[in-house]
Design a protein around this nucleic acid. Structure first.
Length: 336
DNA sequence: AATACGGGCAACCGCCCGGTG
DNA sequence: CCACCGGGCGGTTGCCCGTAT
């Protein structure tokens, strides 16, 4: 994190200078900048980011605006800690995708690649490291005795919030290592599911409670999204996915009590008040919907049962992800 | 109470890729 | 074919804050 430039006021005075690329602000975003970007995006939608920066009256480069919007201001962002299910999914997807954070994020509703990347580097990586060191036998703790097959060593290790213990965990993101392990059936393709009862987060027994990908702003009911024209639309949701509808998993319990959306975030993201602003958005976002969808045709393991479909040299990410997206995690359909 | 330290995370950097003229 | 530009992405930095000493 970086301090906002001390000359924010000075930068403002240069608003009318169109040739001010050398005076672009860096560092933390001020609440005024957030307001400008937020209102511009809601009113005009996403276009050329350098235009966004210019037209919104921001002394920022387009990239900075894009990043701020994607990582912080997007109304559909989920704030707060990762749920155990999300952790599991991240680990699972990372075992398949490696450090392709954007692709992992695409399958985690409301989470950004940056958020997941930070979470991985700060939390999960550390846990895996501790795990690997604690798993080492006291008698064989010297480095020379490190198992050749660290996949096997890690398999059955850290599974947050569950007792599964069949998912391999990787410190190494090499696809070749991952795919070879995949081929060896070393992980449970649906680690977050109870195969017998098909228990999904928020539900059980073949059905689960899902929250649709919808967002309400300032209490206005309806879905929100960017339409074909790039304009941020409220109302008139798009339905795609399982049985024709978009659903986002209810990955965490969201309070429905606080519906008083504050329109002015208190700018201090170390301060919980600021986070509350976004949590309130999410409260409203995720409220009012508690739909049940039927989970059918889960293609568990079919892909991996046919080993001839995969060879080391023909590893196909998209094919691999088929099993992760619609089949294995039907609630993630809307993302693709 | 003061200081040191480490964790968490927002934001920047630099590279890559695709589109366009 | 090439140069330029904007957008996307992964890696890294650096600051704030909580905790330990």
């Amino acid at each position: 994190m970086r301090k906002p430039e001390p000359s924010a006021a000075a930068a403002k005075s240069n608003n009318n200078n169109s040739n001010n690329t050398s005076k672009l602000r860096k560092g933390l975003w001020s609440p005024e900048e957030d307001d400008k970007l937020m209102s511009y995006m809601i009113n005009n939608g996403q276009g050329c980011w350098s235009d966004v920066a210019r037209n919104a009256g921001l002394q920022r480069c387009g990239k900075s605006c894009r990043l701020r919007w994607i990582n912080y201001l997007r109304p559909d962002l989920k704030r707060g800690a990762f749920s155990p299910q999300e952790e599991e999914l991240i680990i699972h997807l990372h075992s398949l995708l490696g450090n392709r954070w954007s692709q992992i994020a695409a399958r985690l509703p409301g989470r950004t690649d940056n958020e997941i990347k930070n979470f991985w580097n700060s939390t999960i990586k550390k846990r895996l490291k501790n795990l690997s060191s604690s798993n080492a036998s006291p008698n064989t703790s010297d480095s020379s005795s490190e198992p050749k097959d660290h996949h096997a060593m890690l398999a059955g290790g850290f599974i947050p919030g569950q007792e599964h213990g069949m998912m391999p965990l990787y410190m190494d993101s090499s696809p070749s290592l991952m795919q070879s392990t995949v081929l060896n059936h070393m992980f449970d393709p649906l680690p977050m599911l109870d195969h017998a009862g098909l228990t999904l987060p928020g539900g059980a027994g073949g059905y689960y409670n899902a929250t649709p990908c919808t967002t309400q702003i300032n209490g206005v009911g309806g879905d929100c999204c960017f339409g074909d024209n790039g304009v941020f639309e409220v109302g008139g949701g798009v339905d795609i996915g399982v049985e024709g509808e978009i659903f986002v998993p209810a990955l965490e319990c969201v309070s429905t009590e606080n519906q008083n959306l504050k329109t002015e975030p208190i700018y201090d993201h170390r301060n919980t008040t600021h986070n509350n602003y976004y949590n309130n958005i999410n409260s409203i976002t995720n409220t009012n919907y508690n739909n049940n969808i039927k989970v059918e045709n889960i293609g568990v393991g079919n892909y991996y049962d046919d080993q001839e479909e995969l060879t080391m040299g023909e590893w196909d990410l998209e094919d691999l992800m088929k099993d992760v997206s619609s089949a294995s995690f039907p609630f993630l359909d809307y993302q693709s």
